[in-house]
């Protein structure tokens, strides 16, 4: 492990071998099995995929998932940007405090945060009470709707966005902003012409991450969303749990996987994948 560079390929591969074998056996093979099931269950052929393409219900679910992911990414960006900006502009102490908050949220289990929203939006919860107080009585049913699951997903995924943005923003040289100002730019122009373009990589990173995670999101939509407006991951789960339809579930999983890989590939082509994982 110590020597500088080994010319032959044998030594590094020896070190890699256990992990490569493990991942082949317990990552690649199961994936391949999903792909196989999608064209063999219940009978060989592309029937499952044809079914996906023909049935309006499936198209509706995919469209729904895509739009939800897009909406969540946009909301995270709109909400996350001011917070990240605030952190980047604040004193180190305040910035550290806010980062502490974001980090805590980030680390708290998805389930805990999903549950918290159930409490907040429940029929006997504070939000309903507040709406009633404001005269919206009877308050609308908030839980188990597209609204509640989207809101919770925004809350759950916003730390990814803030961290992506902040890591880029704090590297923006303040001298550039002063330079722009000294060259005659008004505060808004400084932001619009200098800060915003320089923070763009953070926006792209954050949005890509949020979008991708959201595409395959299972827990929150299943627990908080409307059963009538499922997202792809939830529907895959239903196919297996309720109908034991592995073929159809696998076909949907393959389409979901393909969409995720498309997003990744587009990102990789334009920006390079190394930067995404931060």
């Amino acid at each position: 492990m110590i020597s500088t560079t080994v010319r032959g390929a044998s030594k590094p591969w020896l070190l890699l071998l256990p992990l490569v074998l493990f991942l082949s056996a317990f990552f690649l093979v199961p994936l391949v099995q999903v792909a196989m099931m999608s064209v063999t269950e219940p009978e060989p052929g592309f029937g499952n995929y044809a079914h996906l393409a023909e049935d309006a219900l499936y198209l509706q679910v995919f469209l729904n998932t895509f739009l939800t992911a897009l909406g969540v990414a946009v909301c995270c960006l709109l909400l996350g940007y001011p917070l990240a900006y605030l952190m980047a502009q604040s004193s180190p102490r305040v910035a550290a405090l806010l980062m502490l908050l974001v980090t805590m949220s980030f680390w708290t289990s998805f389930l805990v945060r999903t549950y918290a929203w159930m409490v907040l939006l429940g029929n006997n919860g504070p939000v309903t009470a507040l709406l009633a107080l404001l005269g919206w009585d009877p308050a609308p049913h908030l839980l188990f709707t597209r609204f509640s699951s989207t809101l919770a997903m925004v809350h759950i995924l916003i730390p990814y966005m803030v961290m992506s943005l902040y890591s880029v923003m704090k590297r923006i040289d303040p001298a550039l902003l002063r330079a722009a100002e000294s060259l005659g730019a008004k505060p808004w122009s400084v932001f619009r012409q200098v800060y915003l373009p320089l923070s763009a990589p953070g926006m792209v990173n954050g949005a890509t991450l949020v979008f991708m995670i959201c595409l395959g999101f299972y827990v929150t939509p299943v627990l908080l969303g409307s059963p009538q407006e499922q997202m792809v991951a939830g529907l895959i789960g239903t196919q297996i749990e309720e109908f034991l339809d592995f073929g159809q579930a696998s076909a949907m999983a393959m389409v979901l996987l393909a969409s995720t890989l498309v997003v990744l590939t587009v990102y990789h082509r334009r920006f390079g994948l190394d930067r995404l994982w931060g």
Partner: peptide, 27 residues
């Protein structure tokens, strides 16, 4: 080390991260 197949190894080690868990769950 710099060796033949390093890029592939790198990709393989980070790939599980890009998989929606529901897909792997079925697998």
């Amino acid at each position: 080390h710099r060796f033949l197949g390093r890029g592939i190894a790198n990709l393989m080690l980070t790939m599980p991260m890009a998989m929606p868990h529901i897909v792997l769950a079925i697998g």
